[in-house]
Computed example of a mutant assay.
Amino acid sequence: MAKRTNGSEKNRKEPLSDVARRLWAFSGNECAWGDPHCSTRLVTEEGAWVGKIAHIIGAEPGSARHEAWDGKDVEQLRDFDNLMLLCGVHHDLIDSSVTRHAYTVEYLRAVKQKHEATYRYTVDDIEAEFRDTIDGSLVRPAATMRRYFNWEGEALEPAEEQEVLELINRFAGRVGRLTRVARQVLVLVVDEETPDFELVLRRFSADRTTLLSVVRELQKAEMVYLHDEEFDGERGQLSLLGGALEGMPEMWDQIRNFCRDEDVDVKEILVDLDFARLD
């Protein structure tokens, strides 16, 4: 049996924040158990977090399947590949001294892989989707949007929540491909709803040609439109487009109202690209 790497330290450590976020993101808000399928929600409609992170290879000597650890790198024990999200019943089932022998490392890895396959991206896909092509910054995607769903107060099925999560993260990737100044202009339009072009010009102390090029960038991304027709009563105003949100323009209002009600700075989401603020 492998021993602790340090006599005064325990092998069992809390998962790193990014690891925990990935587990929740790839869970679909359901227990990973699949034989038979367990549809227990990991976050209840009331917002209670009832899911439990389980070790496939136990961290401590004497824990379930600990003997499978090679004893070399203690960090492997809290790595994403060694953890799975389960409901309380199945978490206790695989760890109980009475039943643990029935669940091997290979079996649990297969259960985890099958469940997460529906929801997970590969690392390369994440890099490709969220890399900012302008300055190399990386979008921090939403993992669960639990805070947003609780704020919205509308009970959605797990599949519906997953659809909204995927929509927002695709949108996040598109925002991440904008220049920073375009993202700053976008925030102003979101805050002001239909600001006048001259107002935006004064706010940014920019010359007209530069700002027009930024607006064209936003128009191409299907996020902002400049009313410049002579016959248009809103001539000179900027308004939001719903193309980047895949036909859900009401999401602009939802993001604006969520930020105001939850005391979140919309700049943190749309400029700093921290969409995890919705979690």
Rank of each mutant, 00 (worst) to 15 (best):
A2D: 02
T5R: 10
S8L: 14
E9D: 09
N11C: 07
E14P: 00
P15K: 07
D18A: 04
L23I: 15
A25P: 04
S27E: 02
E30K: 08
D35M: 03
H37M: 06
R41C: 01
G47F: 01
G51E: 08
K52Y: 04
A54N: 07
H55A: 08
I57W: 02
I57H: 08
G58Q: 01
A59Y: 10
A64F: 07
R65W: 05
E67V: 10
D70H: 03
Q76E: 15
Q76H: 11
L77K: 07
D79I: 02
F80T: 03
F80N: 02
D81V: 07
M84I: 15
M84L: 15
M84V: 14
M84Q: 08
L85R: 00
C87A: 07
V89G: 00
H90Q: 10
L93W: 01
S97D: 07
H101D: 14
E106R: 12
E106Q: 12
R109A: 05
K112R: 15
H115N: 09
E116R: 06
T118R: 13
Y119P: 10
Y121M: 14
Y121N: 09
D125K: 06
I126N: 00
F130Q: 08
D135F: 13
A142Y: 07
A143W: 03
R147Y: 10
R147M: 12
V164C: 00
E166W: 08
E166P: 00
R177Q: 14
R180H: 00
V181D: 09
V181F: 03
Q184P: 05
V185K: 02
L188S: 14
V189D: 06
E193V: 15
E193N: 11
F197E: 01
E198F: 04
L199I: 07
L201G: 08
L201I: 05
L201C: 04
R202P: 03
R203N: 12
T209Y: 09
T210P: 00
L212H: 06
S213I: 00
S213Y: 04
Q219D: 13
A221I: 02
Y225H: 15
H227L: 06
D228T: 08
E229L: 15
E229D: 15
E230H: 12
E230V: 13
F231W: 13
D232T: 10
E234T: 09
G236F: 04
Q237F: 09
L238H: 05
G242N: 15
G243I: 08
A244F: 03
A244S: 13
E246K: 10
W252T: 03
W252Y: 05
W252V: 04
I255K: 05
R256I: 05
F258E: 01
V264Q: 13
D265E: 13
V266W: 09
V266Q: 14
L270Q: 03
D272R: 13
D272W: 04
L273M: 13
A276E: 11
R277Y: 12
L278R: 02
